[in-house]
């Protein structure tokens, strides 16, 4: 991927809009003024109803977000991220179980006991990520809000909206989680590929 140098002249709202867009991957709906500025600066593009970061925008956001390499924040966050990855694995398993039963048939949410079982596993995931986020927020307060955002999605789920766990198009638990994951990758400067390798190693290491 081509790598263009950061444009240093972005004001704070534009920087926030850029990072937000990259963390979320896309934005659907009305453009904010800051997002319009991103489009004008070539950092984002409009595709039909969507706004997405351009390659330059993504690289810029990565540089803006990256914690100083070798610094104390990175050193403190990295081990917490490594604790996060196995939980991340379990979250995806829980999402799969929510969508598909063990036999491969789609989960139609008519079996309350099955759903309650998956929901219960989600509690373990939520408790685990909550503990990790508690410590992450000590290191990097910008991550604080994810606990509340996950809690809001969980509340939606418990109010009887089964799509609040995995729906890719709403602020579901999975969506918020993906954003958190993406932000962690940006903070630590880890690529998706490294991330997957690391997760596989950490998950495999657990079962010894």
């Amino acid at each position: 991927m081509t790598h263009t140098s950061v444009s240093p002249s972005l004001d704070e709202p534009t920087r926030q809009a850029l990072v937000g867009l990259v963390v979320q991957g896309m934005h659907r709906g009305q453009l904010s003024a800051a997002q319009q500025a991103l489009v004008d600066a070539g950092l984002a593009m409009v595709k039909g109803p969507l706004v997405m970061p351009t390659a330059v925008g993504a690289a810029t956001a990565a540089e803006l977000t990256r914690l100083p390499a070798g610094g104390p924040e990175e050193a403190a966050l990295r081990p917490l991220f490594e604790r996060f990855l196995p939980v991340n694995h379990e979250l995806r398993e829980v999402c799969s179980a929510w969508q598909i039963r063990p036999d491969g048939s789609p989960n139609d949410h008519r079996d309350a006991a099955y759903d309650a079982g998956v929901r219960d596993r989600l509690d373990d995931v939520d408790a685990a990520v909550g503990r990790i986020l508690r410590r992450m927020a000590d290191v990097h307060p910008g991550l604080e809000h994810y606990r509340a955002d996950l809690g809001a999605a969980l509340a939606q789920l418990d109010e009887g909206n089964p799509s609040a766990l995995t729906s890719p198009l709403t602020r579901s638990y999975h969506t918020v989680w993906m954003h958190l994951h993406q932000e962690l990758l940006l903070l630590l400067g880890i690529s998706r590929a490294e991330d997957e390798q690391l997760e596989a190693a950490l998950v495999a290491g657990q079962k010894v």
Binding site: G25, G48, P168, T175, M178, H179, R192
Partner: peptide, 13 residues
Amino acid sequence: STETTPADVPALV
């Protein structure tokens, strides 16, 4: 694709 991210959801759909 190698992998997908939230940005690819509309395309996946």
